[in-house]
Design a binder for these strands. Sequence first.
DNA 1: TGGTCGTTTCAGTCACTACTGAAACTAAAG
DNA 2: CTTTAGTTTCAGTAGTGACTGAAACGACCA
Lengths: 171, 171
Amino acid sequence: MSADAHDRLMEWVDRIASHLTAVDGLPPITGRVLGWLMVCEPVEQSAGQIAEAIGASRGSMTPNLRQLTGVGFVERINRPGSRTTYYRLVDNAWQAVVEQQVAALRSFRAITAEGIDLLDARSERSRRVRQADHVLQRLQDVLSDVVSTDEAEGGAPAPAHRSTPDSGEQS
Amino acid sequence: MSADAHDRLMEWVDRIASHLTAVDGLPPITGRVLGWLMVCEPVEQSAGQIAEAIGASRGSMTPNLRQLTGVGFVERINRPGSRTTYYRLVDNAWQAVVEQQVAALRSFRAITAEGIDLLDARSERSRRVRQADHVLQRLQDVLSDVVSTDEAEGGAPAPAHRSTPDSGEQS
DNA sequence: TGGTCGTTTCAGTCACTACTGAAACTAAAG
DNA sequence: CTTTAGTTTCAGTAGTGACTGAAACGACCA
C-alpha cells in the first residue's frame, strides 16, 4: 500500500472517531480503535498493534478493548501456543449496537409506564407521558424488526454491491 | 395533591433523569428539567419555577433550557405584558429526537460511503465497512418511517390506553 | 526453571464539563 | 425616573473521566 493511501485511511479512521465522539459521546481512543478495526489488515490485531496504529499508549488499550468487547463489538481471539491475544470486529458488530438500543428503549419504557400509572389517565400531563411512551414503543418495535430481519438475511450485504446512499455520493 | 403523591412524582422525575444521564449521556439537571416538564402542572413553567421544583440553581437554567430548546424539545413562550418567559414541552417532543437520530445516521453514512470508495471493493475490509453501512441504512430508513407515520397520525396516542410494556425490566 | 514477550494494573496528571452564587442586565409597573 | 421581578452572564469550584507511563503479572519457550 502506498504511504498516501495509508494516510488517507488513517484520516478516515479519525473522521469516524470524531463522529462517534460527537454523536455517541464515545471517548476519542475508543472511536479510533473501532475505526481502525473496521479497515485494518489483517482483521485480527494485537493490543500492541492497535496502540501503535492509532498512536495511543498500550495501557489505554485495556479499558477501551474491554468496553468494546463488553458491548459485543469486538471479540478476543486466543490462539493456543501464543501469548498474544488478538482482537477483531465481530461479524455483525453494528447489529449488536441496535440490540443495545432496543434494551435501552425497553428500560426507558418501563419508566414511562410507571409514570402513566402514577398520573390520572384523563389528565393532560398523563397525555404528555403517553405521547413519549408511544414514540418509544414505535422505536422499540422497528428496531427489533431491524435486528431480526438482518440476522435472517445473514447480515452480509450483497458482495459486489456499489455504495449508493440516497443522499448524494461524493469523491 | 397529597404530599405523598408529589414525592412519588419527583422520584419518577429523578428516575427518568437517571436513565437519560446513563443512556444518552445527558447532564443530570438537563434530565431533571426534561422529566419535570413532562409531568408539571401547569404545562408552562418559568425558569424560576423549574429551578425550585427540581432543586437547582437559577443560573443553571439558562444553559440547560437553551440546549433543550435548541434540539426542539422545549419551546419558549413570551406573553406580552409580562416579564417572565415560560417554557413548555413541545407537542411532539420525542419525535424531534428521532429526527435528530436520522440526521446523525445520514452524516455517519456519508463517512462509511467515503470508506467504501477508499477501499478495494473486493477486499475483505471493504466488506466490513459495507456491513456497517448496510445496518446504518436500514436504521435510517426505519427511523425516517417512524417520523413520517407518526406525524401523519398526529402524534397523539389513544386517550385511555393502559400501559403494558412487553416486559418489565429495569436497570 | 529461568527468560522473555505481551498484557494488565495502578497511580498520577490532565482536560473538560456542569453547577453554583453573585452581580449585571432588561423590561414592566408605579 | 425609580422600583422591582425576572433572566442572563460570568468567574470560580468541584467533580469526573480519559490517557499516560511505569511497574507487576502471566504465560509460552528454551
